[in-house]
Design a protein around this nucleic acid. Structure first.
Lengths: 110, 110
DNA sequence: CCGATGGTTCAAGTATTATCGAACCATGAG
DNA sequence: CTCATGGTTCGATAATACTTGAACCATCGG
């Protein structure tokens, strides 16, 4: 699927609010997070975001989201490619009530 | 008190989520916002933030918060200095449920 | 084994932010 | 009027972040 099967993820109890807010301060990154609300997606599939953006760029976007703890990026157990998951529970545990208002807000942006 | 008595503020209905999240992705900026939760403060007073930071730096921090629509920065009607206000209602109207979880989160940061 | 597919990492260039001194501004006190 | 106080703006430099091509990696299909 991709390079190192296992990529590093910050533990649930050490997520940084600054990092999370920064990660979500970008529309493209928020869009990915929003795509994952209804459940995990294959990385290749979730590209609601720009088909025209180079893969290295997309990979970087995912990296920021992963390193901030917003998403999980792991090898797809059954199937090819990688599986992206919103770390909803971890975020909710550490920053209660934070994630939903953020993702909801975009839905009705003027 | 300071330069132009009236500084520009974004209208309540055009606040940008990206700008707000970005502004609040910095601990120092969040701290200021938190200081304003219980009501407006004189700029000079609210320096819970570093007394050692140069005033131009502090002014810049306030600028980011102001331009994102998080705070209002206006001449103090009765008294000297400038008055800082958290634009709670405006934020709440545009991004319901967003601001409180963010400011609450810092209170129990590990 | 081989190629195609999907994905990461590296490096380099560009762009955006942060920091802070210095100059400037406005007001209140004397 | 003048000075001290509190604050903004400007300009330069440093630090971060973004973007992208190229190289590399892993897995699946055939």
């Amino acid at each position: 699927m991709s390079a190192p099967p296992e990529l590093p993820h910050p533990p649930a109890d050490s997520l940084s609010l600054s990092q999370v807010l920064f990660a979500l301060s970008d529309p493209a990154r928020r869009e990915i997070a929003r795509n994952l609300r209804e459940g995990p997606l294959e990385a290749a599939a979730c590209s609601a975001v720009a088909a025209d953006v180079p893969k290295s760029t997309k990979s970087h976007i995912l990296k920021v989201l992963r390193e901030s703890g917003v998403i999980r990026n792991e090898p797809n157990p059954n199937g090819r490619g990688r599986l992206l998951t919103l770390r909803r529970d971890d975020l909710e545990a550490r920053f209660p009530g934070l994630i939903d208002p953020i993702l909801d807000a975009d839905l009705r942006e003027s």
